[in-house]
């Protein structure tokens, strides 16, 4: 395993190839994620962007045929090394999914749960309040903490899921299409929240919504599908550059809507 320390990047991938059985879903990804910034991964359906995102906290481990080549470095350590505990990885690198999926428990318990199972010794009430404040949800729920998480609106549920991810003090938050089930106002609230959270956390978001990537991210990685149907990263750069002056014709075609 690699022991090189690179404090420059939150995550660094080296020669990453991702397989489902014999099918190579993603090939040759070398990507450096800048800490405390928002990185958007965009690209057409099937380009492997979610597969890449899920490999960043070993969520793909649950897919039996999944296999990875290369290295994904977090604090200089390959998170796929044999002596690395995937549960620890997921604690440091949290995830928020497409559809809000709060536990069928109280708002309070949704947030307290992760900390409790990790043996949190501090004041849980304080942790819950602070985390809900960080997730821009406190003012809306502070009088109803005992209500079920499922009673909230879609946008509130998603912010509750973000709070749940924050409660275990991760460094990185992965977001897989976090707003695709939300209305435009709830979407903008999440985007503003992401901006606020990026002061403390590194955020990587997969989105189909190019305007969202343009609005909400600092860096953008464009993936597409190669002739062999494997996803590959075409271009990676600062968001303003990608959306005003992309270097690669394939990026240009995609973001101007002339793809396919």
């Amino acid at each position: 395993m690699t022991h090189e320390t690179n404090n420059h990047y939150a995550i660094e991938t080296r020669g990453v190839n991702l397989y489902y059985g014999n099918f190579r879903a993603v090939k040759d990804v070398d990507l450096q994620i800048v800490p405390q910034k928002i990185t958007a991964i965009i690209g057409p359906s099937g380009c492997g962007k979610s597969t890449v995102l899920r490999s960043f906290n070993r969520m793909n481990d649950f897919v039996p045929s999944f296999r990875m080549e290369g290295e994904i470095l977090f604090h200089g350590q390959n998170i796929y090394a044999e002596d690395v505990d995937p549960v620890m990885v997921r604690q440091r690198i949290g995830m928020v999914f497409q559809k809000p999926n709060p536990f069928p428990k109280s708002i309070y318990e949704n947030v307290a749960w992760g900390a409790r199972i990790n043996g949190y010794k501090g004041n849980l009430d304080e942790l819950v309040e602070q985390t809900l404040r960080d997730a821009a949800l406190w003012d809306e729920v502070k009088d109803n903490l005992k209500k079920s998480g499922l009673s909230l609106s879609g946008g509130q549920q998603q912010r509750l899921c973000i709070a749940r991810a924050l409660a275990v003090k991760p460094e990185i938050i992965l977001m897989d299409e976090p707003c695709s089930a939300l209305d435009p106002i709830a979407t903008l609230k999440i985007e503003e929240l992401m901006r606020e959270l990026s002061r403390q956390y590194t955020i990587i978001i997969v989105t189909h919504n190019m305007q969202q990537a343009a609005r909400a991210s600092d860096y953008t990685a464009f993936f597409t599908m190669d002739d062999d149907r494997a996803g590959l990263m075409v271009e990676y750069g600062e968001t303003h550059q990608i959306f005003t002056n992309p270097r690669d014709q394939r990026t240009e075609d995609y973001i101007t809507g002339r793809f396919g």
């Binding site: 190019m210 305007q211 343009a214 959306f243 005003t244 002056n245 992309p246 990026t251 240009e252 973001i255 101007t256 809507g257």
Partner: peptide, 9 residues
């Protein structure tokens, strides 16, 4: 139309 890249320029 939300133009991007060359269209926007």
């Amino acid at each position: 139309q939300q133009p991007m890249a060359r269209d926007l320029r």
